[in-house]
Design a protein around this nucleic acid. Structure first.
Lengths: 338, 338
DNA sequence: GCTTGGCACTCACACGGGCCGAGTGCCAGG
DNA sequence: CCTGGCACTCGGCCCGTGTGAGTGCCAAGC
């Protein structure tokens, strides 16, 4: 176990390195922090911290930088989430109010988060399966062609074309619409398959095949949409990373383009509370030099989706975590109101 | 006016420079192209081309690189749009088929375009105002709260909440829905304001205020949505630019994040035919070292939106233009079918 | 008058040596 | 266990040199 002072030294190293982006030496540390000991002592502590794998030297006779393990310890034990200042809070609220629809909310959120953290922001659309059905609509576009529209309580709207083999009378359509809605409105989308299972049986023989077609499209949509959508912003902030970055930035941009990867990453985050993945803790190797701070958000207690930021492992964790958490809360409020 | 051979020299310079990314000298030119003259002659031609501003030297005793003006001449006079190979065509078709809805079409298109051109792809959603109304739906979510859903012939769906002051009977709602649709279905969204102008007058006094509310939300949506949505992909390709790019890539990423700027850029492109904007021809200064190749696409003859790519001025214009045109055509087909 | 080979000139860039200084590890004394 | 002192290491910077691609110009040739 590391002594109190050694932890203090680690904290100081992390803070300085995050601030200056340069390896930090023993002398500079004692000058900028009241550790109460001499550089020589700090050197000894550093040697121990290096043995334990919390810090490393880029090369001999350079200062130390934290390792992933060092950041991990910092985040777990040494850092408190930094609450936002009240002007910041007001700014968030002002920025998010005035969104006209879900796309707008998500778009504003991603820009806000990118601006606040000065990093890359990632916002997932509210998950269909975790949302509640507000309404299901069926529209006849042509005699044998319907449009199925799903509306969630978070304001998300999904639509699909349904091509039927046979035309469908308007009265039957109204009937189906009514019965469908009475079964599913107010329920979770996840429960819908079960709720509509026996629906075709209650229809006349003639309509049964069409009803089945509609339902199969409905179920397909739910399955497909487990591959959720997400929006990314603030990629220009990547250029603020080290100066070495042709090699650094490329794999990150590539990883960000693969939404599947990102969704998996967000999916691994805990539903409640904040999840921080540091460097190599991220499965994807393009993100080995980045950290991901993610948190769930939702209109009520349950999370309907995740949002977060991707930044260099050398980031201001307390500040970033504070911003992410605050934004998630406000977005939840906005969704609950709409 | 430049002689035939000098144009040929310019073409050779552009081609070589695009290929090698390095300033091209007189000797290398004669070796790689059958110009039928000696390096000395080419040098003289180059001196003329430089006087006229078509090429420039990065520094004394280096080869020449084309200027924006040089690329402009190349694109206008010297380059033929390169048609895609048939495997490429098939790949496009395979990739775009199987899209389930408009979001999916747009998403696939942007990825396809980025992959094909190895540059940054930009795809605008079909414009509301330029599309045709397929259906307008009104749903009662709560006694005094409606949802307005607009569906275009391109498959785009927009929805808005409408909060009314007074509850609205289901029969009146059905009535409004029917009258609204009978007026606007099959018409351009741009004409909708005019078409519904006198609609409130034909309703009972009690319902008039609600009808007005609904219509005002409808009109607002049309106005707001002239700020169209767009999707960007392939930003990782930016890293393939020169090796100097911390400074190059940053402003480009920033410009790309400002959708308003991009929309303006696309808006300046001609509706039909292809538009190529080279380097400083782009109003935005962050894009001064990039070229934009854009083209309109649509389900019929008229363009409903634009798509294109953003890349370094040093790009393969014939190939890029070919890819952009081909993709636009296929997307048009897909939209027409859905 | 255009084209060509020859020639001197110009730089960007790569290479290598030397200096500097931040930072370390170790050690002996408090 | 802390501290000051000391020798050592090594990356980064400056600078002089050499090299080669490429140019501009000129005089001769077709």
């Amino acid at each position: 176990m590391l002594s109190e002072r050694r932890l203090e030294v680690l904290r100081a190293i992390v803070q300085d390195y995050v601030g200056t982006e340069e390896p930090v030496g023993s002398k500079a540390l004692t000058e900028r922090h009241q550790l109460g000991v001499s550089p020589a002592t700090v050197r000894n502590d550093m040697a121990v911290l290096e043995d334990e794998g919390f810090i490393a030297q880029p090369h001999t006779s350079a200062g130390r930088i934290p390792t992933d393990k060092g950041y991990r310890l910092f985040v777990d034990k040494l850092a408190a989430v930094k609450p936002l200042s009240s002007p910041e809070r007001r700014a968030i609220q002002n920025f998010l109010d005035g969104a006209v629809d879900l796309d707008d909310v998500v778009g504003r959120t991603v820009r806000l988060l990118a601006q606040l953290t000065r990093q890359v922001a990632v916002v997932q659309y509210p998950s269909l399966t975790r949302s509640t059905v507000r309404h299901v609509e069926l529209l006849a576009l042509a005699p044998a062609r319907l449009m199925l529209v799903l509306i969630t309580d978070t304001g998300r709207v999904e639509q699909r074309l349904v091509d039927c083999e046979t035309p469908f009378a308007e009265t039957s359509l109204a009937d189906l619409r009514a019965r469908l809605n009475s079964r599913v409105v107010g329920r979770k989308f996840a429960d819908v398959p079960q709720l509509v299972q026996d629906l075709p049986d209650s229809f006349e023989q003639d309509d049964r095949s069409t009803v089945s077609t509609v339902l199969s499209v409905l179920l397909e949509t739910l399955v497909e949409e487990t591959e959720e959508r997400l929006v990314i912003g603030g990629t220009a902030n990547l250029t603020r990373f080290g100066h070495d970055f042709p090699l650094t930035i490329r794999p990150v941009l590539e990883a960000l383009e693969e939404h599947v990867v990102l969704l998996k990453l967000l999916g691994e985050a805990k539903d409640s509370g904040m999840t921080v993945r540091i460097g190599h803790e991220n499965a994807h190797e393009g993100l080995a030099s980045t950290s991901v701070v993610a948190v769930g958000y939702g209109s009520g207690d349950e999370a309907v989706a995740k949002l977060g930021v991707v930044g260099p492992t050398r980031m201001d964790y307390p500040g970033t975590m504070g911003a992410v958490r605050a934004v998630a809360r406000y977005v939840g409020q906005i969704l609950a109101e709409s």
